[in-house]
Each structure stands twice: as C-alpha cells, then as structure tokens.
Nucleic acid binder design. Structure first.
Length: 114
DNA sequence: ATGGAGGCGCACA
DNA sequence: CTGTGCGCCTCCA
C-alpha cells in the first residue's frame, strides 16, 4: 500500500454507482496526468473482496481495458451493467451520460475525453 | 537497488 | 478506424 495507491483507492471509492471514470482522469485528479497506467496497476493489485469499486474505472475510449487478471472483463461489464451503465454496440460507454467528475458530479462531464 | 510487466494515453502513418 | 512506437508510474520478484 503506497501513498499513490491509497489516493487512487480513496478517489475511486468516491465514484457513485452508475458512473464511470477513465484511468487517465483518475491519474490527472491525483496530479499525475501521465500516470494512467499506474492507476490501472494500482487497481490490479486489489483483492477480490475489496471495497474499492475498481469496475467504475475504464479506459479513455469508454471501453473495458482488462484482459486477464483477478478481475475478468466480463465481470467488470456485468458489475457496471448491474448499476445501470449501458454499453454501446461497439462495447463503449457514453461519457456524456455515465462520466463522473468529483468537481461536478451532477454535470458528469469532464471525466472523459468528451 | 534493479529489471520486467502491466486493467493507459497520445502522436503518427 | 487500425496498427505501431514511446513516455509515464507503480507493483512484484
């Protein structure tokens, strides 16, 4: 548990159900705009029974980036689906509708590339 | 401390 | 839109 990962988890825990944020956005919020990958690494280190909603973090394109870890991509998709997040035919999420920002959680924009 | 790998993101062709 | 290359940062052995 490093300070970085702790900050990542703390932030991810603030993402409300039915909303998603990109790795890059999380990294930017922590002051490390180039550490998108590090965010993924930190989330990948989470155990199965974690209270951190890692599934609410997806790639900037709105797609699920997981391939093979303790958390299966299908699992992430199912969890998001259960919260009301819907994927397009291309397997992407609409940032306009599901994107979340800690500054403007109501607006919901700014968490993704737009 | 060092080296390899990984749930990214952006620029280019 | 697809494929390739590079940078950034953390995690694990």
């Amino acid at each position: 548990m490093t300070e970085f990962s702790a900050r990542v988890y703390d932030l991810v825990r603030r993402i409300p159900p039915g909303k998603v944020v990109s790795y890059g956005a999380v990294a930017a919020m922590l002051g490390r705009p180039r550490a998108a990958r590090a965010v993924g690494t930190a989330l990948a280190a989470l155990p199965d029974g974690t209270d951190v909603p890692w599934w609410r973090v997806i790639s900037a394109t709105g797609e699920i980036s997981i391939r093979r870890t303790d958390h299966l991509p299908a699992r992430q998709r199912a969890l998001l689906r259960a919260e009301g997040v819907r994927f397009g035919r291309r397997g992407r999420v609409d940032w306009r509708r599901y994107g979340w920002s800690p500054e403007e959680p109501d607006a919901g924009e700014g968490a993704g590339p737009g």
